[in-house]
Simulated scan of single mutants.
Amino acid sequence: MYEFNPILSLLAVDAGLRSIMISHGFKSSKQDFTFGPWKVTAAKNHIMKSKDVERLTEELNLPALPEMLFGDNILRIQHCDGFGIEFNAIDALKRIHNTDDTVQVACAQQWQESRVASEHPQEVARPYDWTFTTDYRGTLIGEEMQLKVAETTERINLEKLRAREQIVFFDEVLLFEDELHDHGVSMISVKIRVMPTSFFTLLRFFLRVDGVLIRINDTRLYHEAGQKYMLREFCTRESNIAELKSVPPSLYTDPNEIAQHLTFKLRECEKLEFPEQEPANDDLK
């Protein structure tokens, strides 16, 4: 069990909040929260500058990038021995399938044509996933040791997560967002909550193409104190708008509400096992 000091925990969160810098209405912040052998870092910064967007567009070989790209935003969960996992926008974009197997709707052509005047007109005509759909599940970190990924039948106990338990730290980080030229929204964000005996992370990609479809890719990450692994579940839900006739349209814009009405397409469960430690490091546990 993590040895939490409630007073110190609240002070740590408060210190992070005091580090927020307000500039022209935008809050740029960086919070570090330590609990047990773990450290969470949540950084929120300004939208990526145009020159950096141009460079990244070339590196990723994509004709265009999301309108609001937060390249310096990050959520990192790192063990004191160096291994861990982080979530960032650049790696999320690398998981976009640069093919012509995309959502084919009338507004897709209109959306691409709208960018000809302002974004690499010689390239925009090339087929690519204009919805920015990504199946990103996080980036494993660690120079000497990393988490080991293995398939598992074990599932995250969501009922246990719904139980009332003190939340000692919470944050949410937006990685990118695009309004698809006023034809919907494509966005990905990650949130974390830390409890006295566990932590839970939800990385959510949400896509709504107005009049066409709604898609949600969720990655849930859970770790309980005393266990030598994390559980990671990835699932995809998707429905055409025509299949949602019985659902009030007011729910279409709320990922939390519409998720339960979408058709389940895929679930993959993994165990992120901690690397074996050298005997000399035993005193760190």
Rank of each mutant, 00 (worst) to 15 (best):
E224D: 01
I167A: 12
G226E: 03
L231S: 05
L140W: 07
H24S: 14
F83S: 02
F176E: 08
A43L: 12
D178R: 06
R162Y: 05
K228G: 12
Q277I: 01
I22E: 14
P63E: 05
G226T: 02
K44L: 06
T131S: 13
I7L: 14
E119L: 10
F176H: 11
R126S: 07
L175S: 08
I96P: 02
V168Q: 11
K94E: 13
K39V: 01
V124C: 08
N98I: 03
E59K: 15
D101E: 11
G82N: 09
H261K: 09
V53Q: 14
Y222P: 00
A125W: 15
E159M: 07
T197H: 15
E144C: 04
R267E: 13
R164Q: 11
P196E: 13
F176M: 09
N5C: 08
V149Y: 03
N157C: 07
T57C: 10
E159W: 04
K49H: 13
Q110F: 12
V53D: 06
L60I: 01
E268A: 12
I85V: 13
F274R: 07
W38F: 15
K245E: 12
T219Y: 04
E143L: 10
L174Y: 04
T263Q: 14
L284E: 09
I90V: 14
H120R: 15
N61R: 13
I20L: 08
L262I: 02
P249W: 03
A259L: 12
L11I: 06
I214H: 03
A259D: 11
K191V: 00
W111N: 09
L10K: 14
R232C: 05
R204C: 03
N5M: 03
I188T: 11
N61F: 06
I156C: 07
F70L: 14
T236N: 13
E165S: 12
T152Q: 09
L244S: 05
W111L: 15
I192D: 07
E276H: 08
K51R: 13
S9G: 05
E59I: 10
Y2C: 00
K265H: 11
Q277F: 02
R237T: 07
V13T: 09
P37V: 06
